[in-house]
Amino acid sequence: MRIAFVGKGGSGKTTLSALFSRHLARSGAPVLAIDGDINQHLAEALGHDGDDLGAPPLGAHLPEIKEYLRGTNPRIASTEAMIKTTPPGRGSRLLSLLGDDELHARHVRRAGDVPLMVTGEFDESDLGVACYHSKLGGVELYLNHLVDGPGEYVVVDMTAGADAFASGLFSRFDLTFLVAEPTRKGVSVYRQYRDHAEEFGIRIAVVGNKVTGEDDLLFLKEQVGDDLLTHLVHSSWVRAAEQGRGEDDLDTLEPHNRHALNVLREAVDSRPRDWDLLHRHSVEFHLRNARSWANASTGLDLTTQVDPDFVPGPPALT
């Protein structure tokens, strides 16, 4: 299952991405966390101690990623002709979660107990000439070519705010958790995300965070209605961990917050995988990109990269 955490900057989405990833890993489930936020703090939230994780960022290695994933797909003439939305077809190199392949070997490192990939930070050479969403191309290509199985999880900490909709990446998930504080600013991103998500049939569930009492909870219920899945209370455990003085054992997390993590997993596990829908979204956004800018940029008709006979999901592995 592919899970995204989104929300206003400062809402706690990175913290919840980390807690949920650790919760899954602690159960023994195969899980991969991906830091897709312009502020790259997920490794630290997962318990990594030190400055350098040692994971080559996806955004800095897009040509190599494209070359590997295009495989022998005859519809992709070259690496230069492959864009971030190019969908897989017959001959493409598909991936198993945390599989024994060069992409995982190059880009995955452990942060605490969780395997992690990072998109990379904005650097000085990017300022004024690049969009952060170009760095997210590696994540989009990865998810397009991933054939994950039952009981496997990819957790992505997304960019803050409704800016996540600037890329078709938002449509690559089985379930999106929108983290909202009990404030007007906290729920404003929810309204934007809800309206965009409805257009594409994207399922979102709101996770209230930093709730301090019944008034906070009532506010969230009034503002988001049935989309409110669960909530976490203000956590001294999290604050202590962020200050580097707390325990590392999730068993000591507040009981209500441990329960909320269980609710999140139950919601994910009850969500059926729709391979056809994921692939349709992939194709739709590729065609949009091809017609709006990529055909002109490459001088090619990239709509022909869509393989009409490709069958997504486990059958594609054979």
Rank of each mutant, 00 (worst) to 15 (best):
E222T: 11
L178G: 06
M82E: 07
E102Q: 14
G208D: 02
R258A: 04
H286S: 05
Y153F: 15
V154Y: 02
D249L: 08
G36I: 10
E140L: 13
S21W: 06
A43W: 03
E80W: 07
T183I: 05
R191I: 00
D123L: 07
F285E: 07
E247K: 11
V268N: 00
A60E: 13
I65D: 00
H23V: 01
H107E: 03
L97D: 04
A45C: 07
H256K: 10
A162W: 10
A81H: 08
L143K: 03
P56S: 07
G7D: 09
F310Y: 15
Q40R: 13
E181D: 08
S282F: 03
G161K: 04
S292Q: 13
F5Q: 08
L250E: 10
V129L: 09
R239E: 15
F122K: 14
A77E: 15
R110F: 15
L317V: 12
Q192W: 01
V207N: 00
W293H: 12
D274T: 02
G47P: 01
D249A: 10
Y190M: 00
L19T: 09
H279M: 06
S297M: 15
A162E: 12
A33S: 09
T86I: 10
P272C: 05
A60Y: 10
H107F: 14
R70I: 10
V233N: 12
R273F: 01
G149C: 05
D157W: 07
K8L: 06
D126R: 05
G213Y: 03
G208L: 09
L300R: 13
R291K: 14
H41P: 03
E242I: 09
S171K: 12
R106D: 07
I38G: 06
